[in-house]
């Protein structure tokens, strides 16, 4: 959480410093979002341990089970994501939440597209497992 706040601060400072570069082409929100995402990626790529990004030689697509999550709040889901290792978390956030493709993720993080895919698969697996546990607890 502290890291997130630091990144928020750094991102907004970058926004204000580069405000003169905003050419009023497209939405300001999108422009700020892009800067924020890049700030986070920059932080992550510095911190990330590349050994965490273990590449799958063979991708195992998950057979996802339909689980009712209606009783889980956004904060709970956030905590689930934060519980992921940084490599999983980053790729999952970028792919699932921000909508980047694997090619874009690979370029931004400096990894291979196959590594991005494998990280996503692992993140999904772990999230699904944790979700199931949480579901049981919540009842």
């Amino acid at each position: 959480m502290i890291e997130a706040e630091d990144l928020l601060q750094e991102g907004f400072i970058r926004v204000f410093k580069n405000l003169h570069q905003f050419k009023f082409q497209g939405s300001l929100e999108g422009w700020i979002r892009r800067i924020m995402v890049h700030s986070c990626i920059k932080y992550v790529t510095k911190k990330i341990n590349r050994h965490e990004l273990v590449e799958f030689t063979q991708e195992n697509e998950l057979v996802e089970k339909a689980i009712a999550f209606s009783n889980l709040s956004a904060e709970d889901l956030m905590k689930l994501i934060q519980s992921l290792p940084i490599g999983y978390r980053t790729v999952f956030n970028m792919y699932a939440i921000e909508g980047y493709s694997h090619d874009e993720i690979s370029k931004l993080l400096g990894i291979k597209p196959s590594t991005s895919r494998s990280q996503l698969v692992k993140a999904r697996k772990m999230l699904q497992k944790n979700l199931a546990k949480l579901q049981k607890l919540v009842g």
Partner: peptide, 24 residues
């Protein structure tokens, strides 16, 4: 599972410590 997280968090806003704005 992607859709579940996306729907819940896409427009989610977390509370931010007010001190951050002072720092900024």
């Amino acid at each position: 599972i992607d859709d579940i997280f996306k729907e819940s968090l896409e427009n989610h806003e977390s509370d931010v410590n007010p001190k951050i704005w002072e720092h900024i």
